[in-house]
Design a protein around this nucleic acid. Sequence first.
DNA 1: CAAAATTATGAGAGTAGCTTCCACTTAGAA
DNA 2: TTCTAAGTGGAAGCTACTCTCATAATTTTG
Lengths: 216, 216
Amino acid sequence: MPPTDPPPAAPTAPAPVGLRERKKAQTRAAIQHQAMRLFRESGYSATTMEQIAAAADVSPSTLYRYFPTKEDLILQDDYDPLLAAAFRAQPRNLPTLEAFRAAVFQAMAQIPHEDQEEALERAYLGYTIPEVRARAMDHMLVTANTLATLFAERLNRAPDELEVKVLAGTVIGALLAAQELWIADRSRNLFLLLDRALQCLINGPGDLAPADPQEA
Amino acid sequence: MPPTDPPPAAPTAPAPVGLRERKKAQTRAAIQHQAMRLFRESGYSATTMEQIAAAADVSPSTLYRYFPTKEDLILQDDYDPLLAAAFRAQPRNLPTLEAFRAAVFQAMAQIPHEDQEEALERAYLGYTIPEVRARAMDHMLVTANTLATLFAERLNRAPDELEVKVLAGTVIGALLAAQELWIADRSRNLFLLLDRALQCLINGPGDLAPADPQEA
DNA sequence: CAAAATTATGAGAGTAGCTTCCACTTAGAA
DNA sequence: TTCTAAGTGGAAGCTACTCTCATAATTTTG
């Protein structure tokens, strides 16, 4: 039911052991790296799949096997499982949203700094290029369902209960709000914005005072 | 900055007066109607743009002039201005979310029943076909910004304030939750689900009780 | 009412990404 | 070493989509 997932195995979860798996991960990384370089230098749409294949020293058919669509070159990563694990590890007495907020930061802390940089660059491209942004937004639906499942699990409720889904939805909405402000001014700290957005959900009554820009 | 919008004039807002405008609206409707029929009969991807053009009795180039992409055949409508107008017409003393809830139903009431049916069918297709869903989700961003502007206007705040954007984001999240439940079981009333989802936002503390499935 | 200006339409060729097919090579296991 | 399975490469086809220019219709103007 959820949207398309990358057929080839994800890069992180099961650390590659065999020689084959290692080469595969290597090829994937090389392709993605070269693609990002070309996008940076020549622009996304001006870069053809053939150019990327050539730069990464593989054939177009191989490229297509690793990244079924051009957008996947930007979108593919998989930090969601990391976040899920961090969330499950939160103490049960914490309110759901607080637990989520903590999980976000713990998960982020596990990602090497250089990978964070790259993820941010991909996030930016993923927002500015319409086709990619569309796919990225689509992935938000998957994330929303993942969140609903996690929340339901924690709350002893069904994942398809309206209230649970709404809660997950609001979190997604907060993420979007933070992301958008970051895109508008990338000198701001995305994670700080994210934290503040979640804080709005936590203490917010959902509604604001009409005129006064102050609410603590 | 917002995603691509349909270049040709929208069908609703300024009621077509001249002969030219009327013919244009007619052609647009014919194309979209034929496209939906073909999609229903043969499936989305199995239907080519040429077939649609032929069925609507126009040339492919004309088809592209009306609907720049295949997805637009499903996505194009413009009820957002209707909603905006309805929201602006709400009494100022109503809390923001309540005003929005009322606006949704007032706007919906203005849409002829048959058009509602068609909109629902398009919404369904727009969710089940991955490429289209991606574009639909992308449009959610535009809607989120529209909402932020409307809310900011009503609250005497800046539209790019985090709290305002978060509020708009949560509304989007609630809409998504309702839509998803409706997709899972289309015999349910989408607007009722939507209402309940918004209600969750209004009275919800944002967080739920852990074990008890009851909260009134 | 007729001519001019504006705008919609049609036809065609061209681009490029995605997708598929088949033959080949290479890595890992018995 | 031999068998098996998987990754790889080359080429071709399909189709969404773009661009240009000539033609036809509609509106406006004289």
